[in-house]
Design a protein around this nucleic acid. Sequence first.
DNA 1: CTGAAATTCTAGCACTGCTAGACAGGCGGT
DNA 2: ACCGCCTGTCTAGCAGTGCTAGAATTTCAG
Lengths: 173, 173
Amino acid sequence: MAARELAEAEGWEALTTRRLAERVEYSQPVLYSHFKGKDAIVAAVAQEGFTELAKLLRTARTATDGQEPRRRLRAVCQAYLRFAVERPALYQAMFVLPTRLEFAGEETPTALRAAFDAFMEALPEAAPEREARAELLWAALHGISTLSATDRIPAQGGATRLDLLIEGILPRG
Amino acid sequence: MAARELAEAEGWEALTTRRLAERVEYSQPVLYSHFKGKDAIVAAVAQEGFTELAKLLRTARTATDGQEPRRRLRAVCQAYLRFAVERPALYQAMFVLPTRLEFAGEETPTALRAAFDAFMEALPEAAPEREARAELLWAALHGISTLSATDRIPAQGGATRLDLLIEGILPRG
DNA sequence: CTGAAATTCTAGCACTGCTAGACAGGCGGT
DNA sequence: ACCGCCTGTCTAGCAGTGCTAGAATTTCAG
């Protein structure tokens, strides 16, 4: 998808239908025969992002299979944060731009479920409230990602925050 | 500020310079003699939002002064989440729209510092890594707010997530 | 070779943020 | 009273946006 490259290179605000059309060497209206509108284009990019993120999280988890819970959780969290930092445009399309993606409904894309499941599987199987914990973990990582991407939280201290998050999200004991 | 009312009533995408000019019964260019551009307008609204949020957090804290740490923390968190839900446009201006607000620099507005301090004061004074904890708490609440505002996380289960967050963010013991 | 179907294009609409230059009004100084 | 000036406001317009109608072109079956 050319839209993704363009957005990753210059940001979403630089992705206009005209520039994208020029990039793919067609004229503007052909975009609208393939996609319903600009929203559909970013939604398609977001979808790609979810499969990619799901894959990253999954490998982070399987690579630490059998290790102690702290390490496994840390590996998954770091994979998530790295993804957000290295592919900011993709991340935005997935999580901050207004799109109509069913997140918790019937039509939730499988890639999306897979990504969430990877989160849950990073938590000990016996953890109480495992699903809610995974949601909270996701929310915290998302908050860290967006706030630091916009310099609303100091970059310095990221390691400490991650430590605290891992300690806090694991069931006590 | 009329911009705020308009945005709160119809969302930021409905706030155009023309509509705003019509609202204040002036013509478009006078906006540009008061503000440098549209960004400056949303920044001004965001600034208002920070003083309001700081006030809310502060009263939530003082209202629970002397109570047990869990209750104090919960009161502040709930105040934050309520603010995000009840004033979504204001919240967006403060935290998701791209603005040039110094967050952790010299020119950080006092309202902003006040809001953050309110967070920190909601944590026990003796808590280790108090500042990092406050940052993490903020990030988690922000993640919860944005993800549930865009239906990316189920509204159901919010109470459970808040419980887990409070348990997790307080130092163990 | 012809007519229809599909595909791509040109041209344009209504809108956006923003700005240049014209126009008015009130000010003090002569 | 008159002049020049400054301040504030306006009209008109620019370049750009997402999106679409209808013309033009190509493709291909009969």
